Lab assay of single mutants.
Amino acid sequence: TGEEYIAVGDSTAQQVGDLTFKKGEILLVIEKKPDGWWIAKDAKGNEGLVPRTYLEPYS
């Protein structure tokens, strides 16, 4: 379980453990880390770190 967020920009994984996503994708945020990198899952079930500045709450 988690909260749904929509990507407001494209982000390409810079290192192992990062999640690549495109603008408009809905991501499920699993954990919000205080350093600004959140753990999220995409629609295909891929999981990784995403920069919170690229996400907005999805409603």
Score class of each variant (00 low, 15 high):
Ser59Gln: 12
Gly9Ser: 15
Glu31Arg: 08
Pro57Tyr: 07
Leu49Thr: 10
Val8Met: 10
Tyr5Val: 02
Trp37Gln: 09
Gln14Ala: 12
Leu49Trp: 11
Ala40His: 00
Lys32Met: 07
Lys23Trp: 05
Trp38Val: 05
Phe21Thr: 02
Asp42Thr: 05
Ile30Pro: 00
Leu19Val: 03
Asp42Ala: 02
Lys22Asp: 03
Gly48Thr: 02
Lys44Thr: 09
Thr12Phe: 12
Lys22Gly: 05
Lys32Thr: 04
Tyr58Thr: 07
Gln14Phe: 12
Lys33Gln: 08
Glu56Met: 12
Ala40Tyr: 02
Pro34Ile: 09
Lys32Asn: 02
Asp18Cys: 15
Gln14Asp: 10
Lys41Met: 11
Glu31Tyr: 12
Lys23Arg: 10
Tyr5Ile: 01
Lys23Val: 07
Pro57Met: 06
Gly36Asp: 06
Asp35Cys: 08
Asp10Arg: 03
Asp18Leu: 15
Ser59Leu: 13
Gly36Pro: 03
Glu4Cys: 13
Trp38Leu: 04
Glu4Met: 15
Lys23Met: 07
Asp10Lys: 03
Gly9Tyr: 15
Lys41Asn: 04
Trp38Asp: 01
Trp38Met: 04
Ser59Asp: 12
Phe21Met: 03
Gly36Gln: 04
Lys41Phe: 07
Glu56Arg: 11
Thr12Met: 13
Glu31Phe: 13
Gly17Cys: 06
Val29Pro: 00
Ala43Asp: 09
Gly17Trp: 07
Tyr5Cys: 04
Gly24Lys: 02
Gly48Val: 04
Ala43Gly: 10
Glu47Leu: 14
Lys41Val: 14
Ala40Gly: 03
Thr12Val: 14
Glu25Gly: 03
Val29Glu: 00
Leu27Asp: 01
Lys44Gln: 13
Val29Ser: 00
Tyr58Trp: 11
Pro57His: 07
Asp18Thr: 15
Asp35Ala: 03
Tyr5Met: 05
Ser59Lys: 13
Val50His: 02
Ala43Gln: 11
Lys44His: 14
Ala13Lys: 07
Trp37Thr: 10
Glu4Ser: 12
Ala7Ser: 06
Asp35Pro: 01
Ala13Asn: 11
Thr20Asn: 09
Lys41Arg: 14
Pro34Ser: 12
Gly48Tyr: 05
Tyr54Asp: 08
Thr53Lys: 13
Phe21His: 00
Ile26Cys: 06
Glu4Gly: 05
Thr53Gln: 14
Val8Ala: 06
Pro51Tyr: 15
Asn46Arg: 08
Pro51Asn: 15
Leu49Phe: 12
Asp35Ile: 03
Leu55His: 01
Val50Ser: 02
Glu25Arg: 00
Leu19Cys: 03
Leu27Gln: 00
Ala7Ile: 03
Phe21Pro: 01
Leu49His: 08
Pro51Ser: 13
Glu56His: 08
Thr20Val: 12
Asp10Phe: 05
Gln14Leu: 14
Ile6Phe: 05
Lys33Leu: 11
Asp18Asn: 14
Ile39Lys: 08
Ala43Trp: 09
Val29Met: 02
Leu27Ile: 07
Ser59Cys: 12
Asp42Met: 01
Glu25Pro: 00
Leu19Glu: 00
Val50Gln: 00
Leu19Ile: 05
Ile30Arg: 04
Ser11Arg: 15
Val8Ile: 14
Phe21Trp: 04
Ile6Val: 09
Ile39Ser: 04
Lys33Val: 06
Glu3Asp: 09
Lys33His: 11
Ser59Glu: 10
Ile6Glu: 03
Lys41Cys: 08
Leu28Phe: 11
Glu4Val: 14
Thr20Lys: 10
Thr20Gly: 08
Ala13Pro: 10
Gln14Asn: 12
Gln14His: 12
Val16Trp: 10
Arg52Ala: 15
Pro57Lys: 11
Gln14Gly: 12
Tyr5Gln: 01
Pro57Ile: 07
Leu49Tyr: 12
Leu55Lys: 01
Ile39Val: 13
Asp42Asn: 11
Glu25Ile: 03
Trp37Tyr: 12
Ala40Met: 14
Glu31Leu: 14
Asp18Trp: 15
Leu27Ser: 00
Pro34Cys: 11
Ile30Asn: 02
Thr53Tyr: 13
Asn46Ala: 07
Gly48Phe: 05
Thr53His: 14
Leu28Ala: 04
Gly2Glu: 08
Ala7Asn: 01
Val50Glu: 02
Gln14Arg: 11
Glu4Phe: 15
Gly9Gln: 15
Lys41Gly: 02
Tyr5Arg: 01
Ile30Leu: 12
Ala13Met: 08
Gly9Arg: 15
Gly24Pro: 00
Tyr54Ser: 13
Ser11Thr: 07
Val29Ile: 11
Asp18Gly: 14
Asp35Gly: 13
Asp35His: 05
Gly48Asn: 01
Leu19Thr: 01
Leu55Ile: 08
Gly24Ile: 02
Ala43Ile: 09
Gln15Arg: 15
Leu27His: 00
Glu47Tyr: 14
Asp10Met: 04
Ala43Val: 09
Leu28Thr: 10
Leu19Gln: 00
Glu4Lys: 14
Ile26Lys: 06
Gly24Thr: 02
Pro34Ala: 12
Ile6Asn: 02
Leu49Gln: 09
Lys41Gln: 10
Tyr54Pro: 02
Asp10Pro: 06
Gln14Thr: 14
Glu3Cys: 11
Lys41Ala: 06
Asn46Glu: 07
Asp18Glu: 15
Tyr54Lys: 14
Ile6His: 03
